[in-house]
Amino acid sequence: MLTVKNLHASIDGVEILKGIDFEVKPGEVHAIMGPNGSGKSTFAQVLAGNEAYEVDESVSEVTFLGQNLLELSPEDRARMGMFLAFQYPVEIPGITNAYFLRASLNEIRKFRGEDPLDPLEFQELLEEKMRLVQMDPVYAERFVNAGFSGGEKKRNEILQLAVLDPKLAILDETDSGLDIDALRIVAEGVNRLRSPERAFILVTHYQRLLNYIVPDYVHVLYKGRIVRSGGRDLALELESRGYDWIREEADVSA
């Protein structure tokens, strides 16, 4: 589904990603872990197409569903089935969640050659998905993330994920800033959305999220490279040992 080869990316002339190799198949859940500043969020932003980052296209290769991802606009990536749950979701005052999500879903449907949903059809779908992620229906008519608490914003991202039905969902530090109850609710939402067709990339600093969403693979990013990959055990090892041993190993081999 997603193949990343030797991905190099920089911002303001500073190289952040220094050659990432990575592969995701349908149905898989990958966790990307790593100490602060290792490039985790940059990796998520680059995959989603944030133009603030410059990808070195002379060496980098990224294929998504058979297409050269680097040539696609962020909106086309989204329409093809990529979804990024933001670490800091953005507020759009004056636009209701329902309106925004319908506009978004209809763009995606149009791309797929499907008819747009009218407000009534959409309302039905939205209510179903709100139940799925345990969100109060009043949030449908609230303005997009405006005045939401940190936990509400994160849950709203998961609601969008549920409605837009992407093929690949990237969750950027979705656990940060959540108390344990909010974390559990968000994780339950994600677990309900797991399917053999849909893949997830979980970007996280802490392993606690992985207690709730059990990954198939864990990768450790350090100084812009994946320095270690493994199964779920790797996350547990990181929890008990911290990141220092990773740093030491990586710095020695470098």
Binding site: A48, N50, E75, F83, V90, I92, F100, A103
Partner: peptide, 23 residues
């Protein structure tokens, strides 16, 4: 960018934000 990652192109996103502002 947030709107773009939801499949909404920039010009429509501007219109969305401006309309919200004027609501």
């Amino acid at each position: 960018f947030y709107c773009q990652t939801r499949g909404i192109r920039t010009e429509d996103a501007i219109s969305l934000v401006v309309n919200g502002f004027c609501k």
